[in-house]
């Protein structure tokens, strides 16, 4: 059996004239907790809807649990637990009723598990959905996404609408109920500092492509800010990938990939430098907003590879 839960290879998607995804590729291994990051409107939800077969791609290859969702959408949906962003459910149903309503759609539905999750997540089963708070609504959606013991759980920005206490509870649930049971979790989030403690792996989507996919810890070890004299930048190997650079007097602060080798290199050439650790927000910003390609003539020797 394939050990990839999700496999996407140069997928393209346009809506009318605007191209949302331009050859996006990434892979999610089974058992991983995978965070999918990108600015709003960069196509996260589009990608997620494609994974469920709710949207079709224009070109490229896409497999979810070894199946093509465009060809077998029902088989994929039956094996995947999905929580949509801002999921609207039938307001007139009671929380307990929607559990019973959804149950027969999933062959592997475990109603006792559903009731247990509802209890764990403090979802009031007697209440009508339209009277639930936003947080209760999300948690009810989560119960619906988990109760059939899916191999893969896809959550579209579940933190949206949860307060800090609930987010912590949610992260805890995610860790205990999903990571603890070896499930694959693929989720998108706009709260990067919430992602870091939880995710094994992150992928950053920018301008319709994945600009970086990496283990969370590796990413933080790999991308760092180095402050060095402006002229020393020319001494750097041309292969060094500079994500962002900010002149600071006669020094320049550069954000680089492969920090370890860069530091090694600087040490060899005995260039005075300082290394600053970056948090995930700053790393994300460097990838998404960074001025990597030097436009100033002074830095002409360094190219974004």
């Amino acid at each position: 059996m394939n050990d990839l839960a999700i496999e996407i290879h140069s997928v393209q998607k346009s809506f009318g004239k605007s191209e949302v995804l331009r050859g996006m590729s990434f892979q999610v291994e089974r058992g991983q907790t995978f965070a999918f990051l990108g600015r709003n409107g960069e196509g996260k939800t589009t990608t997620i809807r494609m994974l469920l077969g709710l949207l079709n791609r224009d070109s490229g290859m896409l497999r979810v649990l070894g199946r093509d969702p465009a060809v077998e959408p029902l088989a994929v949906r039956a094996q995947v637990g999905y929580l949509a962003e801002d999921q609207t459910m039938y307001g007139w149903m009671r929380a307990g009723e929607i559990l019973r309503f959804v149950a027969p759609f999933y062959p592997t539905w475990d109603h006792e598990l559903a009731l247990k999750y509802a209890n764990d997540f403090e979802v009031p089963l007697q209440m009508k959905i339209k009277h639930l708070s936003k947080g209760q609504n999300v948690r009810l959606g989560l119960v619906l996404a988990l109760a059939h013991r899916p191999e893969l759980v896809i959550l579209d920005d579940p933190a949206l609408g949860l307060d800090p206490i609930m987010r912590k509870q949610f992260n805890r649930d995610l860790i205990t109920h999903l990571q603890g049971e070896g499930r694959t979790v693929f989720y998108s989030s706009h709260l990067l500092y919430e992602v870091e403690p939880v995710a094994d792996e992150v992928a950053i989507l920018d301008e319709g492509r994945i600009v970086r996919q990496s283990g969370t810890e590796q990413l933080r070890a790999d991308v760092k800010q180095i402050t060095l004299p402006s002229d020393a930048i020319l001494a750097l190997n041309k292969k060094v990938k500079i994500l962002d650079q900010r002149p600071d007097g006669n020094e320049v602060a550069i954000t680089v990939e492969g920090a370890e080798s860069v530091v090694e290199q600087l040490r060899c050439e005995s260039v005075e430098h300082r290394v600053t650790d970056l948090n995930l927000d700053e790393i994300f910003e460097a990838y998404v907003m960074g001025q990597g390609a030097p436009e100033i003539g002074k830095f002409a020797g360094v190219a974004k590879s």
């Binding site: 007139w92 149903m93 019973r100 149950a103 027969p104 759609f105 539905w109």
Partner: peptide, 21 residues
């Protein structure tokens, strides 16, 4: 699932229940 006889309805039952409501 054997554990939840009472909860397991068919898809049709579920859908018709919803539409009836």
């Amino acid at each position: 699932m054997k554990t939840n006889q009472q909860a397991m309805r068919s898809v049709w039952h579920s859908l018709l229940w919803k539409e009836w409501h």
